[in-house]
Design a protein around this nucleic acid. Structure first.
Lengths: 193, 193
DNA sequence: TGTACATCAGTGAACGCGCGTTCACTGATGTAC
DNA sequence: TGTACATCAGTGAACGCGCGTTCACTGATGTAC
């Protein structure tokens, strides 16, 4: 690999830079030029690879969903009992949101990516599939007679809500608890609405 | 009120404009200049009133929380039974998110306002207080022995997750259901994690 | 009833900035012969 | 083994844009006397 002209893996270097920018300055600070700067490359290089800004962010979101899907699957595989799988997925969801905040924010904010991108659609559906297949393996008794899709949405909404409220700093206004102590408490308190 | 120089209620006119901008072009399109344009006023007028951009958005969020708090309170008062209050609050939360999307987005995104603003803090805490007081009026039996704070967080996370997933367009990828049919189903399916 | 004056809302010109996009280009690489 | 050529990655100058902020200003309003 030459030192100069041909970077070798610029695509990944740029996506890495995007992550850094979000980590340091938030999603609003992402720009093609700043990503180029951090990758040590001319400011028009990113457009060459990704077409435009939204293309770069969509590629970033796709990469996020790939890791996310793998982690969800690993969580589901980490337990034998259905309800243990269920909990493991929930905890891993929140863990991902906190550890990989830049991905999470771009993945789940519609204005930050192109949801119509076929690859994006595919990889995001796959992630949801992990949750669905766990729910579908539940017995009618375990589901309390609930529709599996609704049960999946319910679980998803709960962890997604916790994650976003935490990331937005709203929760810390109301409780001093460590996030995972809180998660534990919330999972146990998940009373019937 | 003169036609020209002194507007009379520019502050509100600007906040109204902010709502319009978000409705039409999303939170990223908000600017002092665009708000001024829509209020039919010079571009430096908003700074005169709000100090800077974040000041304008924080005022917008405050206004949102005021309406939000009132609606939460009205929902809580609309029923006699505790669990009916609980449900009413949940539905109203989601209804607010959908009907008043611009407010909702600015209220719950930390980078869109100044969370340290004393008035903001006050009015957002008040809203949460409505939920807390309903949960606190529940008997130990109704709570299934759960900590009231955790029960409140759990309910909050559920509806907040539903609302944000819906607004971000993520849910519509997976279900064709009307939002409130889905909400109904999810509330009923709210199984123990 | 009239005048002077303080206050405050809103103006408009100017500034510098970072951005996305375009485009003709150049340097490196690999392949065909 | 050497040469010609196509391909593709990355360059860098240029463009126009909308933005936030500043600042000396002006027009309207109300109050004191």
């Amino acid at each position: 690999m030459s030192d100069n002209y041909h970077h070798g893996d610029l695509q990944n270097a740029l996506l890495h830079a995007v992550g850094e920018i979000i980590e340091e300055k938030g999603v609003g600070a992402v720009s093609l030029r700043e990503a180029a700067r951090r990758a040590g490359v001319s400011h028009s290089a990113p457009a060459h690879h990704f077409g435009d800004k939204i293309g770069m962010l969509t590629a970033f979101a796709r990469k996020g969903f790939e890791e996310f899907g793998q982690r969800m699957q690993a969580a589901a595989d980490s337990a034998d009992e259905v309800d243990a799988k269920f909990r493991a997925i929930g905890v891993e969801y929140i863990r991902f949101a906190v550890e990989r905040r830049p991905y999470f924010e771009v993945m789940f904010r519609s204005e930050m990516h192109d949801s119509a991108d076929p690859d994006f659609k595919c990889v995001s559906k796959d992630s949801f599939g992990v949750l669905m297949s766990v729910v579908e393996s539940m017995s009618a008794e375990e589901l309390n007679g609930a529709d599996p899709m609704h049960a999946a949405m319910s679980a998803w909404a709960l962890v997604h809500g916790l994650a976003t409220l935490w990331l937005d700093g709203t929760l810390s206004q109301f409780t001093d608890e460590d996030l995972f102590t809180l998660v534990q408490g919330v999972f146990e308190a998940d009373i019937k609405v």
